[in-house]
Amino acid sequence: MIQSRLLPDGVRLHLNHGPIDLILWADEAVRGAAYAAAAMAFDGLLEDLVAELPALRSETPGPLCHPVAQAMERAVAPFRPAFVTPMAAVAGAVADHVAGAMARTGARKAWVNNGGDIALVLGPGQGFSAAMLGGTVTLTAAGPWRGIATSGRGGRSHSLGIADAVTVVARTAGEADAAATMIANAVNLPGHPAIRRAPACDLAPDSDLGTRLVVTDLGPLAPDEIDRALAAGRARAQRYLARGLIGGAHLALRGQSTAVGAMAPGGALALEETEDA
């Protein structure tokens, strides 16, 4: 059974079911209807996805039944033949699904935050600012980007790479989620002695990563090594940008960063530094 409650501010809604934890906001004019629609879309979703987990954890999932499962597969498909399963897009795709339900109530502005992966509804003249490592990024209705996602070492899921954080903007949260995962995996220094790794299945027996080595700890790195790791991730991000899969990406590691596309310096979504950045 889902848990639903307003947060202490009396405006945002918290929806929870098992491992899925959502924070929602919708404009006041349709807030009641939007939250009711969101709760209805969320109810039973976990059970539906669990029923398809064996396929969702596979590189070749075959036919999928639930619309969110199908959206997960669509989001990751463009990144193959590199290894990726639909699970790389699960958080973003869930956020997209619930945000879509709110949009259908006529919301001019709404958002769903699923652990940092955010799906947006932005009507004419609307915008949304999100805090991220090093500053904030602002999306507006004038652009096509309606998804923000962050991946990296130490996040909710295991990573093949060493990035502190990779934040991506894309057309949907599911697509941003998949891209952030793949770019974060590329921020890497294969064989470096400061990087400790372990088979994913040793840390989580049901991991879709199986025996692939995920990062468990990161020791000291020289500045040129950080540059090299970021350059590897940047190269992958540039390829995704050239293919139109993302609008931009910001990559951070050990106090150094780089960005591509709309999130690069001077871009439409360039990072605005905060005072404590």
Rank of each mutant, 00 (worst) to 15 (best):
I2A: 03
L6P: 03
L7G: 10
L15I: 04
N16V: 07
G18L: 13
D21M: 05
I23P: 00
I23M: 10
L24N: 02
A26L: 04
D27R: 05
E28N: 09
G32S: 05
A34R: 02
Y35T: 00
A36G: 15
A36W: 01
A38S: 07
D43P: 02
V50A: 07
E52I: 02
A55M: 05
L56V: 05
L56Q: 05
R57K: 14
L64W: 01
H66N: 08
H66K: 03
P67K: 07
V68R: 00
Q70H: 01
E73D: 11
A75R: 00
A77S: 03
P78V: 03
P78F: 02
P81D: 06
A82C: 08
A82V: 09
T85W: 02
V90N: 13
G92N: 09
A95Q: 08
H97G: 06
A99T: 12
A101F: 05
A101P: 01
R104K: 10
T105C: 07
R108L: 12
K109D: 00
W111N: 01
N113D: 15
N113Y: 07
N114I: 10
N114T: 11
L120G: 05
L120F: 13
V121H: 04
L122F: 13
Q126S: 12
A130F: 09
V137F: 00
L139E: 04
L139K: 08
A142C: 14
P144I: 12
R146M: 10
I148D: 01
T150F: 04
R153Q: 12
R153M: 11
R153H: 15
R153V: 06
G154W: 14
R156I: 10
S157Q: 13
G161M: 09
D164K: 03
V166W: 01
T167L: 09
V169L: 12
T172I: 07
T172Y: 02
M182K: 08
I183Q: 13
V187A: 08
P190V: 12
I195V: 15
R197I: 14
A198L: 14
P199K: 15
P199M: 15
A200S: 14
C201N: 14
D202C: 14
D202H: 15
L203V: 14
D206T: 15
S207T: 14
D208G: 03
G210C: 11
T211V: 14
R212K: 15
T216Y: 14
A222G: 06
A222I: 00
E225N: 05
D227S: 13
G233V: 06
G233D: 02
A237Q: 02
Q238V: 07
Q238H: 07
I246H: 04
G248R: 08
A249G: 12
H250W: 11
H250L: 11
A252F: 04
G255E: 09
G255F: 10
Q256Y: 11
T258I: 10
A259W: 06
V260E: 00
L269K: 11
L271R: 13
E272P: 06
E275W: 15
